[in-house]
């Protein structure tokens, strides 16, 4: 028997919204530790790893390990039927072929249950070793989303260059090029963004970091890597899960983009870099 009850159902809804466009079908691993998932996109270029620890649930019971194969689009359809302030309970029998989602409103006067058929999914699981990354950047998740969105209107890839004082995002395309530099900041510091295009030369925006857009950089070695923006933009669908995003980079390794889920765990995205031929 697997049973997991989350008081803040919106968290589960947001998690699904953040991964459903990247991954079609995925196996959720239910263990005593928690509710976890590892899945690659269809091109095997990016990977999502989700962990919702058992201790973060209001109620959690897992008598024995269960793998639940789900179509994420269908799961998302079901979870969309829950209100944001509903409590969500997931239930499955050990040998069953359905998962039940139960939604309960705060007044406990409306209770819904939805059954979804489980699937047998043959997936490849990758072993991701613990790695000491050369550069770790922590910044506002909204800011990261904004940068990825803005740059994708100009180019298809972004080169991320981390030094001890700044992280620079660069792209180029048919219409020109763009550089956005976020300086390592502390409270009240100014953030500088430089956007350069062939048409209008160089514009410099200085904006107060009034929204807590501090950039923390932990650097062992300066790193420069290039990534496809369309995947990063997809990862940014997790923005509402956490105020900050953590980027981890090392030469010749996939970037790790992590959003912490308060008191519960994380959703991590891995993206293989683009390499020179």
């Amino acid at each position: 028997m697997f049973e997991a009850r989350i008081l803040q159902g919106s968290i589960l809804k947001k998690v699904l919204e953040s991964i459903k466009d990247l991954v079609t079908d995925a196996n959720f691993e239910c263990t005593a530790n928690g509710f976890a998932l590892q899945a690659m996109d269809s091109s095997h270029v990016s990977l999502v790893a989700l962990m919702l620890r058992s201790t973060g649930f209001d109620h959690y019971r897992c008598d024995r390990d269960v793998t639940m194969g789900m179509n994420l689009l269908n799961m998302s359809k079901m979870l969309k039927c829950a209100d944001n302030d509903d409590t969500i309970t997931m239930k499955a029998d050990d040998a069953g072929d359905v998962v039940t989602f139960m939604f309960e409103n705060p007044k406990a006067d409306k209770i819904s249950d939805f059954q979804m058929k489980l699937m047998d999914i043959d997936t490849e699981h990758l072993g991701i070793p613990d790695t000491e990354y050369e550069a770790t950047v922590k910044m506002s998740s909204n800011e990261f989303q904004r940068i990825c969105r803005d740059l994708s209107s100009i180019g298809d890839t972004v080169t991320i260059a981390v030094t001890k004082d700044s992280v620079k995002f660069t792209t180029s395309g048919d219409i020109g090029e763009a550089n956005i530099t976020c300086r390592r900041t502390s409270d009240g510091d100014m953030k500088e963004e430089k956007v350069k295009t062939e048409e209008d030369g160089e514009k410099v925006h200085n904006t107060k970091s009034s929204e807590g857009q501090n950039v923390d950089i932990d650097l062992q070695e300066p790193v420069t890597l290039t990534f496809a923006l369309r995947y990063l933009n997809s990862f940014c669908k997790a923005t509402s899960l956490c105020e900050n995003v953590r980027l981890q980079l090392s030469k010749e390794l996939p970037v790790v983009v992590q959003y912490l889920i308060e008191d519960m765990g994380y959703v991590r995205f891995y993206l293989a870099p683009k390499i020179e031929e």
């Binding site: 095997h44 270029v45 990016s46 990758l126 072993g127 290039t226 870099p273 031929e277």
Partner: peptide, 14 residues
Amino acid sequence: FDGQVGLANFYAPG
């Protein structure tokens, strides 16, 4: 080749 490599270049199954 657009320079995009797969995750299998970095991580082994397991």
